[in-house]
Write a protein that binds this DNA or RNA. Sequence first.
DNA 1: CCAGAATTTGTTAGCGGTAACATAGATGTG
DNA 2: CACATCTATGTTACCGCTAACAAATTCTGG
Lengths: 353, 353
Amino acid sequence: MTRSPDALRGSDLRRPLTLRDVSEASGVSEMTVSRVLRNRGDVSEATREKVLNAARNLGYVPNKIAGALASQRVNLVAVIIPSLSNMVYPEVMTGISAMLEDTGLQPVVGVTHYQPDREEAVLYEMLSWRPSGVILAGLEHSDAARAMLSNAGIPIVEIMDVDGQPVDSVVGISHRRAGLKMAEAILAAGYRRIGFLGTMMPYDHRARKRMEGLQEGLARAGIVLADQEFYSGGSALLKGREMTETILARSPDLDFLYYSNDMIGAGGLLYCLDKGIDVPGQLGLAGFNGVELLDGLPRQLATMDACRAEIGRIAAEIIAGKRPGMAGGRVIGGEQVELTPKLQPGDTIRRAG
Amino acid sequence: MTRSPDALRGSDLRRPLTLRDVSEASGVSEMTVSRVLRNRGDVSEATREKVLNAARNLGYVPNKIAGALASQRVNLVAVIIPSLSNMVYPEVMTGISAMLEDTGLQPVVGVTHYQPDREEAVLYEMLSWRPSGVILAGLEHSDAARAMLSNAGIPIVEIMDVDGQPVDSVVGISHRRAGLKMAEAILAAGYRRIGFLGTMMPYDHRARKRMEGLQEGLARAGIVLADQEFYSGGSALLKGREMTETILARSPDLDFLYYSNDMIGAGGLLYCLDKGIDVPGQLGLAGFNGVELLDGLPRQLATMDACRAEIGRIAAEIIAGKRPGMAGGRVIGGEQVELTPKLQPGDTIRRAG
DNA sequence: CCAGAATTTGTTAGCGGTAACATAGATGTG
DNA sequence: CACATCTATGTTACCGCTAACAAATTCTGG
């Protein structure tokens, strides 16, 4: 209102720039500037040049807040994951980012630290920015979170796990089945006294499901889990060493250790090598995830790939409405994609006879 | 305008909820609802209850886009880092999040993949959301990025590194000095034929500065770097093994290897242990960062702590305006904080005589 | 019981953009 | 050359919320 035209150029009044400044500097209407900056609608080449120059000279950066409010469109995708310290999630992020790259959509990360109430808070915060979609890890959420998700009116993709009731779409693997498959491989290799080592976190549902799957698989052969050991916090590699020592001290007759993740598995492997334990002859080992890190270890740890990048990619495709076969539709409920993890036997499980 | 009051309750018209809906449901003005939801201004307990109930029942989630536009305030802090795969950055994020926790500020991450043009694009995108501050890694930016930062009119904190000209505030360590200090420790321990192993990335300025610092330190004793080896991509642990094999094959007389990060250092250490090389007698090793992972290795790798969490914490404090001694001021330029990394000699460097 | 202060609630006018429609020139056509 | 047809630009009315101020209500004390 009170803006004098000359407040424009020289003066560094630190008033944030608006479309109007660019409009005045280039001598066209705000609407035309808006069109140029968004590459929308017809604008003559001459005008476009003028506007772009003015914008560049002024150092104008559009205000997406105003833009989003006016257009009712936000190019953000909320991604809610438990942690960034567990390399699994950065890898999923990589898959998501790569897929979203040329869709104009932008992922925004929120971290829950495996706490349901944090998840709820993060979700609320993110929804208040009215994203175009939500990707979140796991199928277990508080009632309030579930309600927010169903009411949001945007595509929701729950990832990592398929053992449960999704709100909308879901992309993941069956951890129960993964545990079961591992049980079969272990038994086929002739191991019989099996121990499980994992996190103590009550909300690590996927690790829990793997353990349950393992138990079920063993039960089918009339075997029960011989021992188990849990940890929380600290360096996973070190914890792996310590837990392995502990569990072997307590149950020296164990002949197989199933770890809930590769990092503690790697720690266990290093411990066994240190102690001169015959792996996989005397003792078999397996982890879970197929993290890249394992490639550098002295011996390949048996593991099962959790399809992280693939999960990220597909989840992003669903949000972007790019899934083949879903021609712009997305009317009745969501899509369900179950991927199949592959066992990578490595060198720490006896070759089955 | 055309909203019938009865469209409110029963009908699931999927029209997104607004303050008005809560206002109608609770029988007070929109402004009062707004006040309740933000805990601002005086509202009677009775009204507050009514409003909160209505909001809860409807499942209302405020629209921060509109709120931010109206109030000219955004509770977001842009954090721009090169990568999430290098655990250093998630750790910095942890420090930032922890500090921001109770300030009402929310970090939003952008990743550059060590590419200046990506950094520029990410920065532009983030600034267009008008965050309250920017935290970004490194002091090297494109001219355009630097211009955007100076014009943004918000606090900027460059982190990790202090060797250069900051735009505003800076929090980090001197990587040059870190390299130099390592050179001194290496020489003091009696090593003379030193090799450097690092990333090939032309934009990993901090690794480059450490190498230059190392070279300077060696030069002071009239020694030049005996050999060097670079890698890019792949599993860092595995690359560490491979590079170590390569460099030792080429220069068997090396008596010390300085790695640009702990991950490749750990790979090198595992390789040496495999091969039965006498560490640190015949060959000394050192990495950089002090990552937690190292705690689980068979032997402690010498390293230098990069103060990641501390850097994140302080950067967040500066953005939040919480630094003691800066009583609400922040007028003339920014704050400069140089932290001092500590050498952790571990077991892979001879105890100096 | 009422003036004046204190507290609670409402009204108005934007924030900085964009959708939708309106208008002015440029171009073509019989 | 009048009239329909494009193309390029401008106008108007919000988007959903909040700052600033106005009004209504309740609370004082004399």
